[in-house]
Structures are given as structure tokens and as C-alpha cells.
Design a protein around this nucleic acid. Structure first.
Length: 274
DNA sequence: CGTAGACCCTGCGCGC
DNA sequence: TGCGCGCAGGGTCTAC
């Protein structure tokens, strides 16, 4: 489900609803996520504490609590974090439930269990193994054509893999990689060694623009993405290449194609992406 | 060292 | 209606 825009949309919808609220109960119905949930540690670092802020790093949602702890949530492919009334029924794949003093509960669902939920000391976040090797935030000022070009010097391989590599730049998954390359007019298979200075600049702008537009439109709901209140995103209607194999390219009239690249579907226009 | 592929897991839509 | 197959927005580990 979620790439950077979806996690950011979730964060923005969640923050005003939970700020100042306090954790009253923690319940782990199914600890077998991508990494086993340590229910005791989760409870020890959250129970009785007030939520003082939210942040996002890459595709991780960080919920900061008083007394210096942070609750970390990663949605994987099928994860969903919503705020529901305390008495809402527990769903089949509701693996973690966090009851709040306000009488609501944070519901973490994840059918495929590729997600992550854990807690740590706030000051340990940066050095934690999940965060220590992450690249730059694409919406930060660090992102530029020069930055990408510079890192590409020591690398090989197709540009799509490059922009999806979280050690280079974070938050770009399969959908937005396809969309950004489409906007930049760059073929996804093109080697990073054969991209001009000019085109690195266009790619950096396309990444920013695509991610910003997607956030503005509430993210992309293909199947099951929703924000903290259950609202779906509508960037899906703005997708120009992703999922459009066989349709005509809105830019040149060619036909959008699909191919498998590094095990994932890549959508592109073979005539205007070169 | 860097990259490709398998793998983790469930659910859905499709063709037969 | 039922079944098997391929596919899905994540990341990590292994084998080259």
C-alpha cells in the first residue's frame, strides 16, 4: 500500500487526532509481523504516556511520546493504521490495538504481515538499524540533480532500481518510481551511467513533483490505502503510467507497456521515455 | 562490492 | 461454483 505520500497523508491525518492523548492499553493479538512484535517492550515504552508529536522518516511513521519514547509503525504492503472508537469490533487482521484515554483506539491491521511495529527511546531512533543507513528525504533541500548524479557515479544498473534504493533516496516505491520516470521522460531500464546532467535535474524535479502532488491528493488508493480516519486517496486517477499497460500515453499517443524489472512490474511509454 | 532473485504472507481477480 | 495461477504499493537475505 504505502509509499512516502501515503505515510505522510496518514501522519497528517493522525497527528491532530492523537496529540495530547494518552496510551491506556496495549494489546498484541498477533506478534508475527515482519519482525516479531515485542509486546512487553511495546507496553513498557508506551503505557501511560502522552503522545507529543508525530514524524515521518522514509516510509516509517514515528509517534513520539512523553518521557522520551517513540512508537514506530511501518505499513509494509498491506498495513493500515486507523483511529476507531474503543468499542469497534476487533477485525480479523487487527494485530495490534492501542487503547487511548480519549476512549478511542489505534488499530493496526495488516493481512500480509509485512509491516512493523516497535518502540524505542527517541534518542535511539537515528542509530537504530532500521534508520541508520537510510538515504535522503526526496522532499528535502538535499534532493537535487547534482546529488543524484554524484551518487550515481559510483553505481551501475538501471535508473529505476537506483531511485528505489533507500540507501540513496527514501520513500520511492514502485508506483512513484514509474510515475517520476514517466514525467522525466527517462526509460526505466536506462543505466545510471548514461544519464546526462540535464536529465538528472529533470528526474529530481519529477520525483519531488510527483510525491508532492500525490500528498496533495491524499495518496494513491489502489485497493486498501486509507488515512487515519479511513479516507481513501485519489491520486490514482492522476497516475499516468502505473497500471496503464495497453492504454495510450497521454503525452505522445504511444502505448504504455509493462515489463518485469528486478521482480516488479514497470510501466513506461517506450516512445517518450528514452 | 554491487546486483538479481528468492522469500516472507494473505487476498483478489482471472481463466478454465 | 470451484480451483489454480499470477499478481499486489514493502524490505531483507542469499547467491553470484
Amino acid at each position: 500500500m504505502p509509499e512516502l505520500p501515503e505515510v505522510e497523508v496518514l501522519r497528517r491525518s493522525l497527528e491532530p487526532l492523537v496529540m495530547g492523548d494518552r496510551v491506556r492499553s496495549v494489546s498484541v493479538a498477533e506478534p508475527r509481523l515482519r519482525e516479531r512484535v515485542d509486546a512487553q517492550r511495546l507496553e513498557a515504552l508506551t503505557l501511560g504516556r502522552m503522545i507529543v508529536g508525530t514524524r515521518r522518516r522514509a516510509k516509517y511513521l514515528l509517534i513520539d511520546l512523553e518521557l522520551g519514547s517513540t512508537l514506530v509503525v511501518h505499513l509494509g504492503m498491506s498495513g493500515c493504521l486507523t483511529l476507531v472508537p474503543q468499542d469497534a469490533p476487533r477485525l480479523l487482521h487487527e494485530h495490534i490495538s492501542i487503547g487511548m484515554n480519549s476512549g478511542r483506539r489505534l488499530r493496526f491491521e495488516d493481512p500480509r504481515r509485512f509491516g512493523l511495529v516497535f518502540a524505542l527511546e527517541t534518542e535511539q531512533v537515528e542509530s537504530d538499524r532500521h534508520f541508520a543507513h537510510l538515504g535522503i528525504e526526496p522532499l528535502s533541500d538535499e534532493m537535487s540533480g547534482g546529488f543524484l548524479r554524484n551518487l550515481a557515479k559510483s553505481r551501475r544498473g538501471p535508473v529505476k532500481s537506483f531511485i528505489m534504493n533507500s540507501e540513496i533516496v527514501v520513500g520511492v516505491g514502485n508506483i512513484y518510481a514509474c510515475e517520476a520516470l514517466y514525467r522525466a521522460g527517462i526509460h526505466p531500464v536506462r543505466s545510471v551511467a548514461r544519464i546526462s546532467r540535464d536529465r538528472w535535474g529533470r528526474l529530481a524535479n519529477a520525483l519531488k513533483g510527483t510525491l508532492e502532488d500525490a500528498i496533495r491528493q491524499g495518496g494513491t488508493t489502489l485497493k486498501d490505502f486509507a488515512d487515519a480516519t479511513g479516507r481513501e486517496g485519489y491520486f490514482r486517477v492522476s497516475l499516468e503510467s502505473y497500471g496503464r499497460a495497453g492504454e495510450s500515453c497521454g503525452r505522445c499517443g504511444g502505448t504504455i507497456r509493462r515489463r518485469i524489472q528486478a521482480g516488479r512490474s514497470t510501466f513506461y511509454c517506450p516512445s517518450c521515455q528514452t
